[in-house]
Design a protein around this nucleic acid. Structure first.
Lengths: 193, 193, 193, 193
DNA sequence: TATGAATGAGAATTCATTCAT
DNA sequence: TATGAATGAATTCTCATTCAT
């Protein structure tokens, strides 16, 4: 995928910012054009439709996320890999909070025009977590529950990360990573099982 | 709060179903009226506006969730309390998946007319988790990070729960609870710290 | 016409007050019911429709106005009669400003359901002025312009009266009567003709 | 103020015609779009709302009226000025009867979104009459009643003018001017004072 | 005689999309 | 490659009226 630049970039950035504030459905093409500083016609010159625009946006964002997760797990195994994934995910959420909000608001919508794309990318992102879990706890693989565990870890980092950035933004990132990893450490539930 | 019954109930139920499928913004008042089997005018006779309708809906739903969480933690401490909370949250998500989807899609929107309501209730729900964490791990309290840990646990259960119900619905609930609790058990990250 | 009392009176009073503030079309039956302190059903128990309600209201108001004008002219002739009419009209505007506003806003509407009624009453009211003018200035009769002169005098008192009550209400009525009569005295236009 | 042309002009003209027939509240945006020969969306592309549309319309109309009155008084004093004002006002009412009806129906509404605009312009128009009266009858100035006299003259011409155009349209304008001025001549009230 | 919940046609407004320039 | 005026279907909301009690 060639990187998006120029007018398309302006439009992407404006659309993402707005969708982070108002959701995708709540963002109008007029809003996007105005914030991007281009005429409304330019939106349709550059993208076939609103759906295509946001599909492209999510595709780019989730693709970058997947890449970052994959890269951060590279060469690591088990526990270390899992920590790296959480740290990376949190870093991406901080770097692109608008995208994180859009994904959070859209991740369980099954009526979107781009649900195939969205589904595929989410699957890829979760697969990174699942792979790390499989390596760290081989015995879990057989239960078929690694996908659920991956969702659990992903959800923990996503929700805690947004909580941090929206309502507790002054806290240093290291503390947030520590708090999330703490919930996985077993110290919250020493006696269970 | 007196329970909502009669026409208001019909409207709430229809609105919740539809918003679970299409999101709040994607749900039209015509849709709601049709599914509720009432005339459009009745919507506005019973609720001042679309915003007020969904505010009432979320208020009721989040209030019930908070109550359920509070009740499930009652008389339990530490670890047992935390397990009860996760189990209850998962049970509520299963019992009212549409509501869970709506909440998940709305929880980080800061532009809603009902953001005060939404914020207050989310705070209350998270406070239950935070209280259990404070009891289970008193030493964590001082860091001020229990709120983040609460979000982390809440997010894990919410995202894994929806993943389950939307994409893996045949799996028995007990396995899902087990998978989520497993991620908190320390066995995913035995070497960290 | 038997005088309107009881619930009908409450409704008339509320409707007149509101129409004075917002115009007839701008006044809703809900507004009327609420201000009258009765249920909306009562409006339709007592009046066949909104149009009939306001027709009755205007009929009553204009009928009373016509009566008052007729009585005030009784036994007077020419100039004295004209002064009496202006004084009476101003008194009625002060006593029932809401009605005056409604009439002012409705007098040239030709699309009303009650235009026949309205037209007939306006004609009667203006006829009182016309009769006084005919007596005061017999030579004007032949030109057929007494109706226009009657409108002129009526308009002068109506507009000046409302200007007074809406924007200069502290001024004593006597001064207002004097100012209006002054405009008819010839001293504004000594050299004309 | 740059003159309104193009699509905005089409819309203004249609809206004014219709409001003259049905009043502002009785005129729908669908009606306006249809009569203007444009799509309904064009109304909202060119004006933010129905209120803004009619505010603009009244602003333009009252502004033109004020200008005409000011120009007609230019270089004249006293009586001559007053006659010129009445003649001009009557001419404007004839040239734009729809606007006159709208203004007449709206002038005493205190609930309009554009009441500030309306108030300011009415004040300016009346100020022209007041200035002429002050010059013609300097001794009246001290009583502070010139504003009322201005209303009186304005009201006489407005109501008589509309009476003429709506119910006696075949009469030549000169006769109408003469009838109105006759009411100010003192011959209606020779004995008063 | 009075009520108020329910109705549905209609009114205001929104917004993705088109198209002539 | 870009523009922005124009569109019309869809959407939210209003309100006179009905009717079972």
């Amino acid at each position: 995928m060639t990187p998006v630049t120029g007018t398309k970039r302006l439009i992407f950035d404006a659309a993402l910012q707005l969708a982070g504030e108002r959701g995708i459905t709540g963002t109008t093409m007029d809003d996007v054009a105005e914030r991007a500083g281009v005429a409304k016609g330019s939106l349709y010159y550059n993208f076939a439709s609103k759906d295509k625009l946001f599909e492209g946006l999510l595709r780019e964002g989730m693709s970058a996320l997947t890449e970052a997760l994959r890269a951060s797990r590279q060469g690591k195994t088990g526990t270390v890999a899992l920590e790296a994934l959480v740290t990376t995910l949190l870093g991406r959420i901080k770097a692109n909070t608008a995208l994180a909000k859009v994904i959070a608001g859209d991740i369980f919508r099954t009526d979107r025009a781009w649900r195939e794309t969205s589904f595929a990318f989410r699957h890829e992102a979760l697969a990174e977590f699942a792979a790390a879990i499989d390596e760290a706890v081989p015995e879990a693989t057989s239960t078929g529950a690694t996908a659920l565990m991956a969702s659990s870890v992903f959800g923990a980092a996503l929700v805690a990360g947004l909580e941090w950035l929206l309502f507790d933004e002054d806290r240093p990132q290291s503390e947030v990573v520590a708090a999330i990893l703490f919930t996985f450490s077993g110290r919250l539930a020493p006696a269970s099982h």
